[in-house]
Design a binder for these strands. Structure first.
Lengths: 331, 331
DNA sequence: CTCGTTATTGCATACGTATGCCTATACTAG
DNA sequence: CTAGTATAGGCATACGTATGCAATAACGAG
């Protein structure tokens, strides 16, 4: 049906292995033959089969990216740089998402014959890292980590950003501060909460339990949490959100409720997504170099694939506050 | 290294082909053996290799999705439903993006051994459809089409939406109407322009050349176009945008310039992305059922794979205007 | 008791590429 | 002139699964 390296070999008058070598610029084939093979391949429109390659070489030059869900506005900002960074190293990206059964995910990752996996999703209790380790399938934690299995990682260090946020909140006179946090079984949610509490403590403040709302990192969570806070007899004057997407939900809830931002309510995000700096949004948020973080994760993974024995590398990216229009002074 | 069907066969005391059949519920293997094989497979943690399967069966159960770029805010809304619809049919999704050389893209699609391709990107002059046709690789046009090669397609019919937009604009007293359109080599941009011009003509209006701005379907285009219009001695009172992402750019430009929307300027989008209906945005836009369109495209493709001979199916999804807060009355 | 059937399983092989090893040729050094 | 050494290419085979066909066993009918 389709044209194979054997067809090319026949046309060029060489053996199939020579075709394989010629087209991959193996030094063992002479310049003349290489040219002849190339010409034949072009003429037949030969395209090597990844499946054949994978089976024979044991490598696919494909890398999996595991996300919780694709709907989330945060993920495109991971997918794009990951795709390009991997592409520049000659790797292709395969998307995967969590499904109900954790083991099914692991099976898919394995059956795909991936050379490595970027885990951008792992909850603390996921079995995926275990399964991957058992298979000796290289992987890197991105954004989140899991204590169960150690691996290279690229994450944000929220301490500096949260410290600056706490200082700014204090300086603007905020005392009643709420937080809308991510799921308790994600390292990101936990780390940000810890950093936030410590930073507030240094300012002599704290968050009471009633000012805490938890949920997935999406707009619905931000919306629901903010709505809830606004019905309180003494609503908070500021809300620190688990990430920008949550903060967008908070902004929407405030607008719907007719509550002015930042006059009546201040909102702080985390991630500094491109849309956070849009003139119509101008979200005050904690920023870090997301693109660089993605690229680092990709590089770590490729490096790990090529030298499985090298020591673990855990890189944390610093964060800082970017003040825009959603943080105001308490009257 | 990894466990294969041979290992399972040995443990279960059967031949390798029997393992293959047993695990795929082939009726030719007895219930007893099937159970024995399953047990052995579980015990060894056997996971079949996609590469082996692909090579042997000629099918990969993988489908490619070709996009122009991953940065664009529009694409996540395609990727997610496509991913899930394909998954529900037992197919996996592979992302691909256009790169400088058109032929390189086609080669990748081919070498991947995909069972089919969703073309969400094809410019009118792309060679990709030609290459795919030559390889007998099934594909479906999504959103855009190309005249060079006919294939199943799922697209928006903008006529009704544009008609309603023109009526609404007219009713609100707009006479100076501008448009920020997509690239001239995309069918979407062309179709929307035609529909818009016809609809305006029915209202006795038209768009002068100086009120036309063209560029990629991104926020930068919307921003630049709007900035440009606003510097004119007689700026338009309304801008119809090629899609919502462009409209977001327009909103930003207006805000930056201190121009009120909709008091000084009305803006209309196209797509009705989830964020268009956010309280803090409230974009007036032309809507259609994007999710259904994606699912249709996926279904068409799978159907085409299974019955290559069936007649062509071109489905157009109707559109309509959704009035929100960015369309106002001219003073 | 024999023959035709059906139900199960195994055998052989194909899929397309990569790679270790051997061979043949040409070339260099002594 | 010979032995040693690159250099270039071919041969054989492996990778893991699926599948057409043959083989065996079990079984019932006559």
């Amino acid at each position: 049906m389709s044209v194979t390296s054997h067809d090319v070999a026949q046309l060029a008058g060489v053996s199939q292995p020579t075709v394989s070598r010629a087209l991959r610029d193996d030094p063992r084939v002479s310049k003349a033959t290489r040219e002849r093979v190339r010409k034949a391949a072009d003429r037949l429109g030969y395209v090597p089969s990844d499946a054949g390659r994978a089976l024979s070489s044991g490598r696919t030059r494909r890398i999996g990216l595991l996300l919780t869900d694709l709907e989330n506005q945060f993920y495109p900002h991971i997918i794009a740089p990951a795709f390009h960074q991997l592409e520049s190293h000659g790797y292709q990206l395969m998307l995967h998402t969590e499904v109900a059964d954790n083991d099914v995910v692991a099976e898919r990752l394995i059956s795909n014959g991936l050379d490595g996996v970027l885990l951008a999703t792992s909850t603390i209790d996921s079995v995926v890292p275990l399964r991957l380790r058992d298979r000796r399938l290289p992987f890197v934690y991105f954004n989140r980590t899991s204590d169960a299995v150690s691996a290279d990682s690229a994450v944000v260090d929220p301490t500096q950003g949260m410290r600056e946020a706490a200082e700014a909140l204090s300086k603007h006179g905020h005392r009643r501060i709420a937080a809308i946090l991510g799921p308790a079984n994600t390292s990101t949610a936990v780390n940000r909460e810890i950093a936030l509490r410590e930073a507030l403590a240094q300012q002599g403040m704290s968050i009471p339990a009633r000012y805490i709302h938890r949920g997935p990192f999406d707009t619905a969570t931000g919306h629901a949490g903010t709505e809830h806070f606004l019905t309180m007899p003494q609503p908070p004057t500021a809300i620190v959100c688990g990430n920008d997407v949550v903060a967008f939900g908070a902004l929407n809830a405030a607008r719907s409720a007719g509550v002015g931002v930042p006059d009546d309510l201040s909102i702080i995000g985390f991630d500094d997504l491109p849309s956070a700096s849009w003139p119509i949004i101008q979200l005050t948020t904690i920023a870090y170099d997301l693109d660089a973080m993605v690229r680092r994760a990709a590089d770590l993974l490729i490096d790990r694939i090529q030298s499985p024995g090298r020591p673990l590398e855990e890189s944390a990216f610093p964060s800082h506050l970017i003040e825009r229009d959603t943080l105001g002074t308490v009257p």
